[in-house]
């Protein structure tokens, strides 16, 4: 027993050491490779080529099946800042920039609605300093988005911005700003909407919906009107509350953390990714979308039972004369005779 212990400890230790060294080396290599590639792509003639390729890939996805509702959990801003030795604020700033980039890409692919988890009600447990920074950043980003939504030259033009969640927890100043922005971007024609969940938790959302439903029974004689639909309609995300097609969570945690429980517990594709949110880029989102599109295509195929032969036959139908033969027009049949002939 003792000998086994003496032997086991150094061996295990040795293996962990080697594993750790290998891991570090791989990490370092990956990092330098990534930096080199991004530096290479940012040169002006190559960046144009990259842009052209990206554009054609985006349009290729656009012509296939496209999800209606994509949702992001933007996790990993702080770890990103720690890793790059930046102040916390810069981490959140970089996260905001990534979000804008992804919104552009998704809009061009043809997604109808994007939602994101900007701030949880639980986040009020953080330090006051960080909360203030986040609030300030949010207010700045919101006006930036509103400006872009009004700008004819911008891709975000005509986008409807909604800030949803328990807004009573916000300051009065921020609430008036939100109201203004929502009013400004509500143009009636909504091809693309953006839902920002700011102080939000899903349990709070469900409870609010229950409360609204209960309050609505004040004027009705019975309680039979309450159903899944009425509950869904009172959730925060308007027409997109029933389901969320793709939910993406970055930075490796495999849980929902009180986000979109009602929306994603039925048939959402939930993707967990290990990258930190600020480094979540075009390749990642493209790959996720391509995967979804590929499988949706197969699913659609099995549902519609599309068949090329049938389609062709149907289109040929016009050239073939329809059959019309009355029975009387046939020549008379020979007389019928039975074997067991009886004398009548």
């Amino acid at each position: 027993m003792l000998i086994k212990l003496y032997l086991e400890a150094p061996i295990v230790w040795f293996f962990t050491l080697i594993l750790e060294i290998v891991r570090q080396v791989i990490y370092g290599l990956k990092h330098t490779m990534q930096e080199a590639i991004s530096a290479f792509c940012n040169q002006s003639p190559i960046s144009k080529v990259v842009l052209v390729v990206q554009n054609s890939l985006v349009y290729a996805l656009r012509v296939g099946p496209v999800p209606d509702h994509v949702s992001f959990v933007m996790d990993g801003n702080r770890r990103f800042a720690n890793l790059k030795k930046l102040p916390l604020k810069e981490g959140h700033e970089a996260g905001g920039a990534t979000f804008l980039k992804l919104v552009y890409i998704c809009k061009r692919i043809g997604v109808k609605c994007i939602s994101c988890y900007a701030f949880s009600i639980e986040n009020f447990n953080r330090s006051q300093e960080e909360i203030d920074t986040l609030m300030e950043l949010f207010s700045r980003k919101l006006s930036e988005f509103a400006e872009k939504a009004k700008d004819h030259q911008d891709a975000l033009h005509g986008c409807k911005i909604n800030v949803v969640g328990n807004k009573s927890l916000l300051s009065a100043k921020l609430r008036t700003q939100i109201k203004e922005v929502e009013k400004l971007t509500d143009t009636g024609n909504t091809k693309f909407s953006l839902y920002i969940c700011f102080p939000y938790t899903s349990r709070d959302e469900i409870t609010t919906s229950i409360m609204k439903n209960v309050a609505a029974t004040r004027s009705t004689p019975s309680t039979t009107e309450i159903s899944e639909e009425t509950l869904t309609n009172n959730m925060h995300l308007g027409p997109f509350s029933n389901t969320c097609d793709i939910l993406i969570r970055t930075s490796g945690h495999k849980r929902l953390s009180d986000y979109m429980l009602w929306e994603s517990h039925e048939n959402a594709t939930i993707e967990f990714d290990n990258t930190l949110w600020p480094s979540f880029g075009f390749t990642k989102i493209f790959f996720i979308m391509l995967k979804w599109s590929y499988y949706k295509n197969i699913q659609q195929y099995s549902e519609t039972s599309f068949s090329l032969r049938k389609e062709i036959l149907r289109s040929c139908h016009n050239f073939v004369k329809p059959v019309s033969v009355p029975l009387q027009s046939l020549a008379a049949a020979p007389p019928a005779v039975t074997v067991t002939k009886k004398k009548a």
Binding site: R203, I206, K254, R255, L256, S257, D258, W262
Partner: peptide, 8 residues
């Protein structure tokens, strides 16, 4: 859905 809050 209510019970999936922090589930891993």
């Amino acid at each position: 859905p209510w019970h999936l809050r922090l589930t891993e």
